[in-house]
Amino acid sequence: MQWAIIVAYIAIFAVFLYFISIRPQKKQQKKMDAMIASLEVGDSILTTSGFYGVVIDITDEVVIVEFGSNKNCRIPMQKSAIVQVEKAGGEEE
Results as ranks from 00 to 15, higher is better:
44 S>R: 11
31 K>C: 10
19 F>L: 14
67 F>S: 01
19 F>S: 11
67 F>H: 02
20 I>D: 06
69 S>A: 07
22 I>G: 04
37 A>E: 06
73 C>Q: 10
87 K>D: 01
6 I>E: 11
79 K>M: 03
66 E>W: 01
64 I>Y: 05
49 S>G: 10
21 S>I: 15
70 N>I: 11
7 V>Y: 14
92 E>G: 06
84 Q>C: 04
62 V>F: 01
31 K>F: 07
6 I>H: 12
88 A>L: 11
26 K>F: 13
14 A>L: 15
88 A>H: 06
7 V>I: 14
81 A>H: 07
62 V>H: 02
90 G>F: 05
54 V>F: 04
75 I>K: 10
29 Q>S: 14
38 S>G: 06
25 Q>D: 08
44 S>P: 02
12 I>C: 11
78 Q>L: 11
84 Q>K: 05
76 P>L: 09
7 V>M: 12
32 M>F: 08
16 F>Y: 14
10 I>A: 14
8 A>C: 13
31 K>G: 06
22 I>L: 13
61 E>W: 09
51 F>W: 12
56 I>Q: 02
20 I>H: 12
62 V>Y: 00
58 I>K: 09
48 T>H: 11
54 V>M: 07
24 P>G: 05
64 I>Q: 06
57 D>E: 09
52 Y>I: 04
40 E>F: 03
19 F>Y: 15
91 E>P: 03
30 K>M: 11
47 T>S: 12
3 W>Q: 14
17 L>H: 13
32 M>I: 14
7 V>F: 15
44 S>W: 02
56 I>G: 03
12 I>L: 12
59 T>P: 00
15 V>N: 09
